[in-house]
Simulated assay, not measured.
Amino acid sequence: MSLLVAGILLWSATHLFKALCADVRARLIARIGEWPYKGLFALLIVASLVLMVSGWKATLPTALWQPPAFLRHVTMLLVPIAVILFISARAPTDIKRFIRHPQLTGVKLWAVAHLLSNGEIRSVVLFGGLLAWAVLEVIAINRRDGAWVKPGPVGATKTLISALIGLALAAVLVYAHPWLSGMPLLPRG
């Protein structure tokens, strides 16, 4: 469990550093250069992911509660929406006219969806931890950046293409879920 917690804390601290310590970050980039900074950032993110995956695998799935079966269906509905939001952050889409932080909103929705259908301690730590990080990240970014200036419209076609890409990625994630997490989502047959 300690590796899992360490991974979540490293992930959170690395990401929050940009929003909470903008001056320190700027001085660090000025001192070591932009590409070495990006390399260090990437290394810390990879290390946090390794810690989270290792911690997840090393932690026995101890049940806190047994979620009702219907919540699995709710999760299967919410995750594709979360993926669409996640994708829309980097794509031309009108979603950004309605949601200031679509990527972080997608992470929050993904985490909530997984908390609904997983009642074991390691799930609460992982998904609850990442949900807490995403909430704090939104607050920190909003404080740093000030008032939201909504982007201009890009049109229904680009928004639809982005949504279809998100749905396709969600389908790939459902199929790959056993290899990514060790948990099959679809019946074998």
Rank of each mutant, 00 (worst) to 15 (best):
M1H: 06
S2R: 10
L9G: 02
L10N: 09
W11D: 01
H15C: 06
V24R: 15
R25C: 07
I29Q: 13
A30E: 15
G33Y: 04
E34F: 08
W35M: 06
Y37N: 04
G39F: 15
L43S: 13
L43M: 05
L43W: 03
A47N: 08
A47K: 05
M52R: 03
G55K: 04
W56N: 01
T59P: 02
L60A: 10
L60K: 09
L64G: 10
L64V: 11
A69H: 05
F70R: 07
F70S: 13
R72H: 13
T75V: 09
M76D: 08
M76S: 13
M76Q: 14
M76T: 03
L77Q: 09
P80M: 09
I81N: 00
A82I: 00
I84P: 04
L85D: 01
F86V: 11
T93G: 05
T93V: 11
K96A: 06
K96M: 08
F98R: 14
I99M: 10
H101E: 03
H101W: 10
G106M: 02
A113R: 07
H114A: 08
L116Q: 00
S117Q: 08
S117G: 12
N118W: 01
G119W: 04
E120D: 13
S123V: 06
S123W: 08
V124W: 04
V125R: 03
V125K: 02
F127V: 04
G129A: 08
E137H: 12
V138C: 13
V138D: 12
I139D: 05
A140R: 03
A140N: 02
A140L: 15
N142T: 13
N142Y: 07
R143K: 09
R143D: 03
G146C: 15
A147W: 13
P151Y: 12
P153N: 11
V154A: 02
T157L: 15
T157Q: 14
K158Q: 15
T159E: 11
I161M: 14
I161L: 04
S162G: 13
S162F: 11
G166K: 03
A168I: 15
L169T: 06
L169W: 02
A171N: 08
V172G: 03
V172C: 12
L173I: 10
V174G: 00
V174N: 05
Y175F: 13
Y175N: 13
W179V: 14
W179M: 14
L180W: 05
L180M: 15
G182E: 06
M183L: 14
M183D: 12
M183Q: 09
L185A: 11
G189C: 03
G189Q: 09
